[in-house]
């Protein structure tokens, strides 16, 4: 499955103001991989994603996407290069309609002539029936689908998901995990997923990078988390 290196993070340092939350973190992600980033609360997982998309500046080290350094590339341009972001809390434009939200994803991965509505409906058929609904009035699970669908409207090559299981009923978590795997297989997308939910990690990820205090402390397989000892150590359970 895995091909060339898509994303290369090298000795990355980042944080808020002078406080370094990420401190010398390095890893690679290959094309078509689904990598879970796990670790307890407050170890810098969300900070890492925010730095990858350019919301937070890189204070040291390097982020390379397709062999090109992203350090000086502003966030909007990174999105246009194909980095799609589904933030914690989903980041929807809550006052806008479902359709407007979807359309606003079209710049991700450049400017396609056509928006991929059918591709989005293929994964999330519910959205087709809700186009005129105001996004903020949908249920948590539907909002999550919209947030993922919004970047699939464009042409992302990598999808960064921050805690997609948050605020979602347990029976839908498994479904989201399966959809993430389908998106990877059918659309050849690379996925980085920050997650605490054991079920979702095991339903989707190929491997897990474990972060603590802003650095990588271990790399494990999702199945290793079956061991309650390891799960307790690395997840906030």
């Amino acid at each position: 499955m895995a091909g060339r290196t898509l994303l290369n993070v090298n000795k990355l340092r980042s944080g808020y103001g002078n406080v370094a939350v990420i401190n010398g973190l390095s890893f690679d992600v290959k094309e078509g991989e689904i990598v879970a980033i796990v670790g307890r609360n407050g170890v810098g997982k969300t900070t890492l994603l925010k730095t990858l998309i350019g919301e937070l500046p890189c204070q040291g080290g390097d982020i390379e996407f397709r062999g090109r350094s992203m350090n000086a590339v502003p966030a909007a341009e990174r999105a246009q290069l194909g980095i799609g972001y589904v933030p914690q809390g989903r980041g929807l434009f809550t006052g806008l309609s479902v359709e407007d939200n979807l359309r606003l994803g079209k710049l991700v991965g450049g400017r396609p002539k056509e928006m991929n509505f059918d591709r989005v409906y293929g994964f999330f058929p519910i959205l087709k029936t809700r186009l005129s609904q105001i996004a903020g009035t949908m249920s948590g699970g539907q909002q999550q689908q919209l947030s993922i669908g919004r970047i699939l409207i464009g042409n992302p090559s990598i999808m960064l998901l921050d805690e997609p299981s948050e605020g979602i009923q347990p029976n839908i978590v498994q479904e989201i995990g399966e959809i993430i795997r389908r998106i990877r297989t059918e659309e050849k997308l690379t996925v980085i997923i920050v997650e605490q939910n054991l079920d979702l990690i095991q339903a989707s990820a190929d491997r897990c990078i474990v972060i603590d205090k802003g650095a990588i402390v271990d790399e494990i397989l999702p199945s290793d988390l079956d061991d309650p000892e390891i799960a307790r150590k690395y997840l906030a359970i």
């Binding site: 999105a79 933030p87 809550t94 919004r150």
Partner: peptide, 10 residues
């Protein structure tokens, strides 16, 4: 509505 997210969408 959400400038940070708008920016992250290109």
């Amino acid at each position: 509505d959400n400038p940070t997210m708008a920016n992250a969408l290109g």
